[in-house]
């Protein structure tokens, strides 16, 4: 199980050909109190870079672009009733959706945990 991160502050944990996707703790902190999350439909497919989700905080609506392409196999239904779960547990219970990867090569170019940590250190 390996977790990869994007410069757009998303993470994906890979197990075999499947990934679990969410936004990072850094992102939830910057967005502030999250009040609504729209996740993609189960069975839908998207390419890397497509808009797949929307996060609404008290501050603004933010579009989330896919860091990997594939078919959505599950969504986190708990987020509908409790979107603030992402503020509390962004990188664990606050996952957005699971995806069957269409191209594992797309993981190249994403960062590992240390790389992401170094990346966000340059932002502050």
């Amino acid at each position: 199980m390996t977790t990869y991160y994007s410069e757009e502050h998303e993470w994906v944990t890979i197990e075999g050909n499947n990934g679990t996707v969410g936004i990072t703790n850094y992102a939830q902190n910057a967005l502030g109190d999250i009040v609504f999350i729209e996740v993609p439909e189960v069975g839908s497919s998207h390419a890397k870079g497509d808009e797949v989700a929307v996060v609404e905080s008290v501050k603004a609506a933010s579009e989330i672009f896919a860091l990997i392409g594939g078919e959505v196999t599950a969504i986190n239904e708990a987020l509908e009733e409790d979107p603030a779960l992402v503020n509390a547990q962004a990188e664990t219970d606050g996952w957005f959706y699971k995806v069957a990867l269409s191209n594992v090569q797309e993981l190249e170019g994403l960062m590992d945990a240390d790389g992401y940590k170094a990346f966000i250190a340059t932002l502050d």
Partner: peptide, 18 residues
Amino acid sequence: GAPTAPVCVLFVLALEKY
């Protein structure tokens, strides 16, 4: 008012920095 237009996470972050 607070910002209201749809923006991506990265943009929110960039905006706040700016």
